[in-house]
Computed example of a mutant assay.
Amino acid sequence: MPGPVILFAAKSERWDQYEHPLRTALSEVGLSDAVLTTQAAPETVDYIVYAPNSRMQDFTPYTRLKAVLNLWAGVEDVVGNDTLRVPLARMVDHGLTEGMVEWVTGHVLRHHLGMDAHIHGQDGVWRAGIVPPLARDRSVTILGLGALGAACAGALAALNFDVHGWSRSPKTIDGITTHSGKAGLADALGKAEIIVLLLPDTSDTQNVLNADTLALMPTGAIVVNPGRGPLIDDDALLAALDTGRIGHATLDVFRTEPLPPEHPFWTHPKVTVTPHIASETRAASASRVIAENIRRGEAGEPLLHLVDRDLGY
């Protein structure tokens, strides 16, 4: 008797990347008899491996569906789908987390050390005498203390940065000064010489950096956003950069992607744009996460990384 039917619903290039790693991972958890396919009669499908930018938007025909397993960490483009009435699991992948930690640590160190002045200043001028503080004298604030935020906070603390973290609900993390709630946000921003945004995109987090909150930060503070584009009010950030309230912004995510060529971020001298590369999902490690959840589903065990529909992540 064949195993569960697993429908891969993503763009064709993703299938080329994931087919072999998924088959390998399914075999490793004892599901070598699973039917992995890009086409199946809806009433036969048990699980959907899903990218929110796929053509599938109506889950109603999938009457036997047990769970949808998101390929992305972000679920804002699927969590509000009224036709989705089965458990939704987001991607929590060690490879994705490691990639994010490396990107965040690299850019925090870049700004902390003032590396841009030397990288871009190859003009014959000897720019000596500007010495950054040691990491222990530099305050870095992480907005969002989920899996990615906590991992980044831990890595920066290990480098001796004075790390503060903010989340909407109270959290305790060794070596990190944590803040929560509205009052806590003001405290966290006031400490943020460098701020890293790793919040999900929800109605509560959109425009968390706006004219009022940017004004709470130390003059010349650095903004690093590998989280979600809508976390920042673009116009407010540009105004703060123009006045010097914010010293620089390194942005990896945007409200519209790809970032339109006419957007002022491209040409602003205090903005670095990177093309949503802070952390890519790696097919091999992500496939193991998906395969384990399918094994759990077939064994009647609780699924990992389930999304709370009320919270939106």
Rank of each mutant, 00 (worst) to 15 (best):
D201Q: 01
N207Q: 13
A192G: 10
L189N: 02
T202S: 13
L199F: 00
T205H: 02
A192L: 07
N207W: 15
L189H: 03
P200F: 06
N207D: 15
A183C: 06
E193K: 10
N207F: 07
S203N: 08
T178V: 10
A192H: 08
A215G: 10
T202Q: 15
D187I: 15
A215M: 05
L197P: 08
D201G: 00
I194Q: 02
G184V: 10
T205M: 03
T178F: 07
T177M: 12
A186Q: 08
K182F: 11
L214I: 03
V196L: 01
A215H: 15
L209W: 07
D201I: 00
L189Q: 00
H179Y: 11
L185Y: 09
L189E: 01
A186E: 10
D201K: 00
V196K: 01
A188S: 00
T205W: 02
D212A: 11
I176R: 11
I176W: 11
T178L: 07
T202L: 07
L214Q: 02
A192K: 06
K182P: 13
T177S: 12
S180H: 09
S203R: 12
Q206F: 06
T205V: 03
G184P: 07
V208D: 02
I176G: 08
N210Y: 01
T213D: 02
A183P: 04
H179E: 10
D187P: 09
N210G: 00
G190R: 13
G175I: 04
H179C: 12
G175L: 07
L185V: 09
A211D: 11
A215K: 05
D204I: 01
A183V: 13
L198M: 07
L198I: 05
G181S: 03
H179Q: 08
L185T: 09
P200H: 03
T202Y: 11
L189W: 03
I176L: 13
L209N: 09
A192Y: 06
V208F: 03
P200S: 00
V196A: 02
D212E: 15
E193F: 04
K191C: 12
S203K: 06
V196T: 02
I195Q: 04
A183F: 10
G190S: 14
I195W: 03
V196I: 03
E193L: 04
D201R: 00
S180T: 07
G181T: 04
